[in-house]
Simulated assay, not measured.
Amino acid sequence: MELGQQAEKFVLHFGEMGGRWGVNRTVGQIYALLFLSPKALNADEISQTLGFSRSNVSMGIKELQSWRLVNMVHKVGDRREYFQSLDDVWDIFRVLVEEKRKREIDPTMTLLRNTLLEEPATEDEVYGQQRIREMLELVEMATVWFDEVRKLPPETLQGLMRLGGKVQKLLGLAHKLRG
């Protein structure tokens, strides 16, 4: 597969962004290639297109599968495994948020809850626990909100996101009417 100039820019940028998102450059580039590809690709095609070793591609594919961003498919008469990204960008977004939550938010909430079970020994620890309680409440509120939003169909979610600042103005107006 030959990458055009536009695809090459996209793939290289995703590689750079990978480090900021918690994956390495190779994984980011493999994902970008699969995202842009109109057909499923096998590891040799990925390796050849991106100039990566076959072992790097295999490790990258395993990482992407663990994130549930890439699916394996088979072709009749071909023993090789082919890979493709999820098609729907809303599904991709949801999977990414779910995986980030599972890998980062849930362990943080567990730590915060366990810390609050400990008896504070000093005034500083009492203060620290109050701050931790505030942080836990915020994170729990955000996760409950996400759970509700996640249930929305993509069209509704798009409409909600398009409202943007209008929601803030509406909430501000409601607050003023109550106050």
Rank of each mutant, 00 (worst) to 15 (best):
K39H: 07
L41M: 15
N42D: 15
A43M: 09
E45A: 10
E45V: 00
I46S: 01
Q48C: 00
L50Y: 07
R54D: 06
N56M: 08
V57K: 01
V57I: 08
M59N: 08
M59L: 07
Q65E: 08
S66I: 00
R68S: 10
L69N: 04
L69G: 06
V70Q: 05
D78H: 04
D78R: 01
R80C: 02
R80N: 14
R80S: 11
E81F: 14
Y82T: 03
Q84R: 15
W90A: 08
F93G: 13
F93T: 15
R94F: 12
V95H: 02
V95Q: 08
E99G: 07
K100S: 12
R101M: 04
K102Y: 12
R103E: 09
R103L: 13
E104Q: 12
I105H: 04
D106S: 14
T110L: 11
L111V: 06
N114G: 14
T115Q: 14
L116Y: 10
L117W: 00
E118R: 10
E119D: 03
P120Y: 06
E123T: 06
V126Q: 15
Y127R: 15
I132H: 07
R133C: 04
R133N: 07
M135L: 09
L136C: 10
E137R: 12
L138K: 13
V139I: 14
E140M: 06
A142L: 09
A142H: 11
V144G: 00
D147G: 04
R150P: 01
L152W: 08
L152Y: 05
E155Y: 09
T156E: 11
Q158H: 07
G159S: 11
L160G: 06
L160F: 10
M161I: 11
M161S: 13
R162I: 05
R162E: 11
G165E: 15
G165W: 02
G165R: 12
Q168S: 12
K169F: 03
L170A: 13
L170D: 02
L171G: 03
L171H: 11
L171P: 02
L173F: 07
L173P: 00
A174Q: 13
H175K: 08
L177T: 14
